[in-house]
Structure formats: C-alpha cells, structure tokens
Amino acid sequence: MTLRAPLTGVVPPVCTPLTPDREVDTASLARLVDHLVAGGVDGLFVLGSTSEAAYLTDRQRTLVVDTVVRHVGGLLPVLAGAIDMTTPRVLDHARAAAAAGADAVVVTAPFYARTHPAEIARHFRLVARDCPVPVLAYDIPVSVHAKLDPDLVLELAGDGVLAGLKDSSGDEGGLRAVVLGRRAEPALAGFGVLTGSEVTADSALAMGADGVVPGLGNVDPAGYARLYRACRDGDWARARTEQERLCGLFGMVTAGDPARMGAGSSALGAFKAALHLRGVIACPATAEPQIPLSPAETERVGKHLAAAGLL
C-alpha cells in the first residue's frame, strides 16, 4: 500500500517470535500480527530493536518481512528496519525489504566506525537515492552512538530525503525542535514524527508528534490505541490515566535480575514472556546470546499483566 504522509497513530515495533531452536516462528508471528490489528494499531514496524533485528540473519530478516506483508495483506502499512553498520549493507537490507513488500524502511545512522555529521548526512542521502521506498530516520543513540541533530533531520526532510523520524533518543527537547521546525515550514507538512517512548507518549503527542512506536504495544496494543485516540481528541485527562496505567505495565521490563542479565535481555524477555502468557506466541525464547528469564522472573511479568487487567 502507499505510505500515507505523515504516518500517524500507533505503529508497534513487532516482536519476532522464535522457536526453541531460534528459528522464526512464522505461525506465532502471524498470530501476533492478528493480535496487533485487533488492538487497533495503525501500522507495523518489523526489524526494529524490539524485533531483535540485530540478532537475526539476513535470511531470517527477509522471512519476517515477507511473512508480515503477506499476512497483513495491505490492510496496514508495513515499515521494515534496514539497520546495519555501513551504507552498502543498509542498502542491501532496504532493497530486500522493499522486494518483500515493505512500504517504507527505517534507517539508523551508520555505526561501529566513528562517523562525522557530514558522513551521517551522506549516508541518508545515498540510501534514499537508491532505495525504492520511502526512508524514515531512526534516532537511537544508545545503539549507534550518534544522536541525530534536529537541524540535520529537518534539512534532510526538506530535501525530500526523509519521509519521517522515529525518535527513540529520549531527548524530548530534540523531539520538540523537530516538531517546531516542521510546523514552521509548510513544505514539511507531510514529514512524520513518531516517538519510540512507552512512558511519555502522551507528552510527545501533546507537543505535536504524529504517532507512537512503543515496544510495549506488542503486549497491550489496545491500550496505546486508546491513549492515541484520547490525545487526538484532546481528552488529556483520559490520556494521562491511560498513560499512567501503561507506565505501571512497563515495569515488567525490570523483571530480569540485573546481576545476571542486561537490560535488553530483561525487557525483550519480558515482552515475549507476556505475549506467551497471553497465548499470542508459542514460545518466549529470545535470540542468543540474550539470557532467558527464569520462572520466577516470568512470574513477575505475569503480576504486571494481572495488575493491568491483561491476565
């Protein structure tokens, strides 16, 4: 389908269900898509951080895009992460995602090698020049060790390089700068601004963001759909109540013991444990070398679900 401009609403970064031997569980992935569609989401973002894209082989990445595109059947736009260390590798992923039917790609700055802002700008320009579908920038400095400058984002948007921004930087001031810059330039009206925050989505929408890309949206898509609708309708009291309930649910990401696993293992393990407990996916396995949750840690996830009325 054609990507609407700007992209709005709830666009969850879709988890990648795995079998016990760490292959993509396509049946569970299809059920997850059904769960998200039933929850009222407005688009799907595969192969992002919550999708464990960094842990998947190229074959598995292509399988994920193909499975979701085929299953959703044009009902919703499908965005695919094209995330890798260098421009040529990103282009390989972008072309593969487009060939599999993705409506747009979401691209980070290059990483591993140190980059200058001019090289980051050139990276996005080269990707957009040779990519057959629209390109959104993915601002996630915790992973790529480079924060996208708001002025650069707006410059690239104005030049037609970028169709949107997925901001997972946690820099609310930077997000506001992009929103204000877009508002000041009528030619940028079609440039979409999406927040990746689970816990300040209402604030981002209040300042003018177009939508949210919450990892927790896998677990409770209907909750984020209600939150978005409340913000769209200007019912800020209702939005605050829903956001605060989701903040409590988000506490599941700390279920894992930090003495034996990292925050990523804990958060992704919690999302998958929650989906397994809710009967959406068959197995809560995370990609290696992440450390799985223990039964006691999974029980803590269940308590968060119960408190939020989801179990």
Rank of each mutant, 00 (worst) to 15 (best):
V301I: 09
R245F: 11
C247A: 14
D66R: 15
S197W: 00
A308W: 10
A137K: 05
G173F: 13
L277V: 10
L3P: 06
T195K: 08
P110S: 09
G101S: 09
D103L: 02
G208Y: 05
A121N: 04
A187D: 12
R278I: 07
V107Y: 09
V127E: 12
A53I: 10
D149A: 12
R129K: 13
D34M: 10
G223R: 04
T26C: 12
A99R: 13
P20G: 08
A274W: 05
V219F: 10
P295G: 08
V69F: 09
A267Y: 00
S197A: 11
A94R: 07
L156V: 10
G217R: 03
G164A: 05
A206I: 07
T298S: 12
L154M: 04
T241Q: 15
K147D: 12
V135D: 08
V24W: 05
E119S: 13
M207P: 05
R260Y: 09
R89L: 15
L216Q: 00
R182G: 10
L249Q: 00
L79S: 12
L246K: 01
V144C: 11
V107R: 09
P186G: 05
A239C: 08
R4Y: 11
A209D: 00
T62W: 06
V10A: 01
M252T: 11
P117I: 03
L268G: 06
E299S: 12
D103P: 09
S266Q: 11
A255M: 06
P132L: 05
M207K: 00
N218W: 00
L18Q: 08
A80F: 04
D151M: 10
P284I: 00
L29R: 10
H93M: 07
A307K: 03
V135L: 13
A5Y: 13
G223F: 01
E242T: 15
A102T: 02
P289K: 01
P141M: 13
A99G: 03
P292G: 08
D202L: 02
Y224V: 07
G74K: 02
T86I: 09
D151L: 11
A30I: 05
A82L: 04
N218K: 05
P289S: 05
